[in-house]
């Protein structure tokens, strides 16, 4: 019975849903189309529940940390911010009818704290790109030499100085991007699509069970 619930029931649901979604893609049949539409809505609702479950698990995890170490500052901060926001958002929604997404205080917190935080982390990216380039652009062997040459041509071609050095430099940089670069990307895409298709078939046939997290 246990094996039935742990393995065959999830697999059965997967096969049924996949078949119906595939049929919905190619067949116009009102009942089927409506059912899949409802299923899509249900999926987003389930997604919201997943967030709720994760919030509870996160609270438990950080509460455990606080129990072990009363001065776990990051856990106190996280739990405080998260639950204050949740309770305030719900309070405003229930008693004032304001949706949390349109609540002015929450919007202010988002604009004053979250958005600048995002921008700060994004800005860090430029420093790590420079650091990674410093390591990557070393001619240790033939492949890294090719990378170095292509990288230099591309950087110069994209900078205004490239045109001053050689008129055709921007065109050369564009050619690298649009011809060999695009060809490589297409090859990767073809391989990815085919392997994804095969993986999905394996999942449908019940041969790929890694995602279920159960022993064979």
């Amino acid at each position: 019975m246990s094996l039935m619930f742990k393995r065959y029931v999830p697999w059965g649901i997967l096969v049924a849903m996949t078949s119906m979604v595939a049929a919905d893609t190619i067949i116009v049949q009102t009942d089927l189309n409506n059912m899949i539409k409802s299923a899509t809505t249900a999926l987003s609702i389930i997604g919201s529940f997943a967030v709720m479950v994760s919030v509870i698990l996160l609270t438990r995890s950080h509460a455990g940390k606080i129990r072990k170490n009363k001065l776990a500052v990051e856990s106190w901060t996280l739990l405080g911010c998260m639950w204050v926001m949740i309770i305030y958002g719900l309070y405003r929604f229930i008693f004032a009818g304001v949706r949390p997404i349109a609540e002015p205080t929450i919007q202010y917190i988002f604009n004053a704290i979250v958005a600048p935080g995002d921008s700060t982390v994004y800005a860090l990216l430029y420093f790590v790109i420079a650091s990674a380039c410093y390591r990557a652009f070393r001619a240790k062997n033939m492949r890294s030499l090719i990378l170095l040459i292509v990288g230099i041509v591309f950087i110069i071609g994209r900078a205004p100085i490239g045109q001053l050095l050689y008129v055709g430099m921007p065109d050369l940089a564009n050619w690298i991007l649009n011809v060999p670069g695009a060809a490589m990307v297409k090859a990767l895409l073809l391989a990815e699509v085919i392997s994804s298709f095969a993986l999905n078939i394996r999942v449908l046939l019940g041969q790929e069970r890694g995602w279920m997290g159960r022993g064979d």
């Binding site: 997943a50 967030v51 479950v53 994760s54 698990l57 890694g210 995602w211 279920m212 997290g213 159960r214």
Partner: peptide, 15 residues
């Protein structure tokens, strides 16, 4: 992604 949470927890625990 929050949706990964329970699946991954179960998978790791089982492993």
């Amino acid at each position: 992604a929050a949706s990964v949470n329970t699946v991954a927890a179960d998978l790791i625990k089982q492993a």
